[in-house]
Computed example of a mutant assay.
Amino acid sequence: MDYSDHVVAVTGGARGIGRAIAEGFKAKGAKVAIGDLNGAEETAAEIGALGMTLDVTDEAQIGKFLDQAEAQLGPVSVFVSNAGILRTDDPSWDAAGATDKEWQDSFEVNVMGAVRSARAVWPRMKPRGGGVFAIVASAAGLLGQIGASSYTATKHAAVSFAESLAITHGDEGLQVVCVCPQAVRTDMIGDSEDGGIAGADGIVEPSDVADALLASIENKHFLALPHPQVAQYEALRATERDRWIGGMRKFRRMMVGARGRPV
């Protein structure tokens, strides 16, 4: 698909998955704007994009980001809500052990960052006939992430919000894509050599996630799954919940025994 007539905005676009998505759209001819807390201008200069410091917990900043992108590049037709954070549970592996602030931070970025972005961009897209809104969630939002209860819960909420957008605005021209990878070679997996439980099916590159997003847009698919096995796992979880939970307990015992800390 040729994106030469499109403007794409990406949050969390300075590094990792966000940068790869920005580069993927650039390679397809799009004009790209990236926003991030740190490094947006530097990355933008490197890849030939527009960069702006952006905190997705501040709705006014999202509006300014869109204003600047549309003033300099044109109407935004694709918005990628990629900014996200991972907060692990406390070292005792207590799922309720994360602090209120860690839970709130996760919710503000992983859920409300997408909500605020949609609230800002959809009123601009709708009069033009629609557009694409993509949320980079996680396989944790379909399955679960051992040792990261706030991440799991907020990524589930992000997936549900993406579904709500698709149901509510699909007939009005909004295409929604929800990206749900397992382990990706980014700073989020730190120095883990195998990606922990998320790496059970291998670690993919950020460019693989970008390719999955681009393919899902073109093929009109709601889910973008860089790890295709996730679809089968989600089906098993839905139909055999007790077996699923038992299997995850087994993985947790293995991880605690091997590392003694969340991954």
Score class of each variant (00 low, 15 high):
residue 96 A to K: 06
residue 218 E to S: 14
residue 16 G to M: 02
residue 84 G to S: 11
residue 83 A to K: 05
residue 209 V to S: 10
residue 95 A to H: 06
residue 118 A to V: 13
residue 116 R to Y: 09
residue 212 A to Y: 10
residue 68 Q to D: 14
residue 17 I to K: 00
residue 233 Y to V: 01
residue 127 P to S: 14
residue 20 A to I: 03
residue 172 E to N: 12
residue 25 F to V: 03
residue 113 G to N: 11
residue 244 W to P: 00
residue 189 I to D: 00
residue 144 G to S: 13
residue 94 D to M: 03
residue 135 I to W: 08
residue 106 S to Q: 08
residue 78 V to T: 14
residue 41 E to I: 06
residue 152 T to M: 05
residue 175 Q to R: 14
residue 157 A to E: 08
residue 245 I to E: 14
residue 21 I to W: 05
residue 173 G to R: 04
residue 251 F to E: 12
residue 38 N to F: 12
residue 242 D to A: 15
residue 143 L to F: 09
residue 252 R to F: 06
residue 11 T to S: 11
residue 44 A to D: 01
residue 49 A to W: 01
residue 226 P to S: 05
residue 196 G to R: 00
residue 181 P to R: 00
residue 59 E to D: 10
residue 162 A to V: 08
residue 74 G to P: 01
residue 256 V to S: 04
residue 12 G to P: 03
residue 205 E to V: 09
residue 18 G to A: 07
residue 59 E to F: 10
residue 36 D to N: 09
residue 93 W to I: 00
residue 207 S to K: 15
residue 182 Q to Y: 06
residue 167 I to L: 13
residue 237 R to I: 02
residue 254 M to N: 12
residue 104 Q to N: 14
residue 132 V to W: 05
residue 156 H to R: 12
residue 176 V to E: 01
residue 124 R to L: 04
residue 236 L to H: 12
residue 74 G to D: 02
residue 75 P to A: 15
residue 76 V to F: 00
residue 102 E to W: 05
residue 134 A to W: 02
residue 253 R to L: 13
residue 246 G to Q: 12
residue 236 L to S: 09
residue 188 M to V: 11
residue 213 L to Y: 09
residue 216 S to I: 06
